[in-house]
Amino acid sequence: MRRFVLAALFLLTAVAAHAVEPSERLADPALEARARVISSQLRCLVCQNESIDESGADLAHDIRMFVRERLTAGDTNAQAVQALVNRYGSFVLLKPPVEPATYVLWYGPPLLLGIGLVGTLVWLKRRQTTPAEAEPLSADEARRLDGLMRGTDV
């Protein structure tokens, strides 16, 4: 189904411009490298989870140029990014900021993994100590199972 998303993405960028045009590049390679790093962390607002570095959308181009201008003017990476957050909100960041509203998002997965692992261990330990609560197979079940395994197993 992804095809439809990407298709729509192309509808928006019907001009089929590509990401990072040579004409956008800065003469200073160090500055340009920083611009690329920043670009890859910024969301193209009108696309699907694509960074502005990858997107061919017009707006992505504008933001790439904006970032380069800020860097040329002497901004740090953080300042250039903040300038965009001031305009578009944290939606522009592909990496959501760690703040109270995103604690669940950021700490949820490791917490869940911890609970999962500990819970499983406790469950296994408890099973070890309590006698098997499973009833043995009834004669009928055992016969059926046996037939199945024998009739078909290698």
């Binding site: 607002l45 009108v46 707006l59 504008d62 904006f66 305009r87 578009y88």
Partner: peptide, 13 residues
């Protein structure tokens, strides 16, 4: 023409 004012406003379309 270069969309800079739009960008400063946070215009995305």
């Amino acid at each position: 023409q270069d969309g800079r004012v739009g960008l400063n406003f946070g215009v995305y379309g």
